[in-house]
Nucleic acid binder design. Structure first.
Lengths: 125, 125
DNA sequence: TCGACATTTGCATATATGTGCAAATATACT
DNA sequence: AGTATATTTGCACATATATGCAAATGTCGA
């Protein structure tokens, strides 16, 4: 049971829920800097929360060059699906700013990869 | 969002999940001593976990005489339902002993001291 | 009121967790 | 090699949490 409790414990933090909501919404990999820009939270804070989500078996990573992309691990059992349903049952209003920011950030992707060097936050907000 | 995060945080503990699983399974009120007997965990430990579940708005209490009965709060939103689905998607094996004990304990409701509060359980709200 | 029972609470302690900063690692480019 | 970018990690600190015991509270019935 510990495996599941670890996952559940991970859901008890606002930042981690916000990260998960982004990944659920966009339904693809996001790199750390994209998550940072979307949530406007320090990189090392995001990094540490992602690490926990990874340790709990909720996220997987894949490095491509300088970037590390994270995405949800979707298992066969109903558990993953129910986690997603649970998060999706939270009021959208809590996440609207995050999603807006994420879409803005993702629109700057040139290929299917993170838009290098474009995370200078002054130009088009 | 804090209200929901508090609830999610509550789900990150094995004892609390086991308590919730009992309540979901039996689908009625349980008194503290019945939960204690089912899970074989100290009364004060159960009491404290129940207190957190209550503070998070997951459980409600109703005192009848010496006994305090607890049951799930079911809200209109999908959240409650999804919490239940999530807990129900955990492997039954983790809870089989608990459920067995609970059924054993509940079958004594008519004869046991704890059953005094239960003889009039027809008015369950 | 007293005693028995059911449950909660206060206190102590050990452990876990979140956050911030600085430094470290990893990779790409020149 | 040296620099820039992306991300992680180690350390420190404050706060939160779980647990155990003893004592307190609330309720019933004699």
């Amino acid at each position: 049971m510990n495996e599941y409790i670890k996952k559940l414990k991970c859901l008890g933090d606002e930042t981690r829920i916000r990260i998960l909501k982004l990944l659920i919404t966009v339904n693809k990999e996001l790199c750390v800097c994209e998550i940072v820009d979307s949530l406007k939270i320090q990189t090392y804070t995001i990094s540490k929360h992602i690490k926990e989500l990874k340790n709990a078996g909720i996220l997987k990573e894949s490095r491509r060059g300088k970037f590390i992309f994270y995405s949800l691990i979707l298992n066969e059992d109903n558990f993953s699906e129910n986690v997603i349903n649970l998060i999706n049952s939270l009021p959208d209003a809590y996440f609207s700013d995050d999603i807006l920011m994420m879409n803005k950030r993702l629109s700057r992707r040139e290929t299917d990869s993170c838009a290098t060097g474009l995370s200078d936050k002054g130009d088009d907000k």
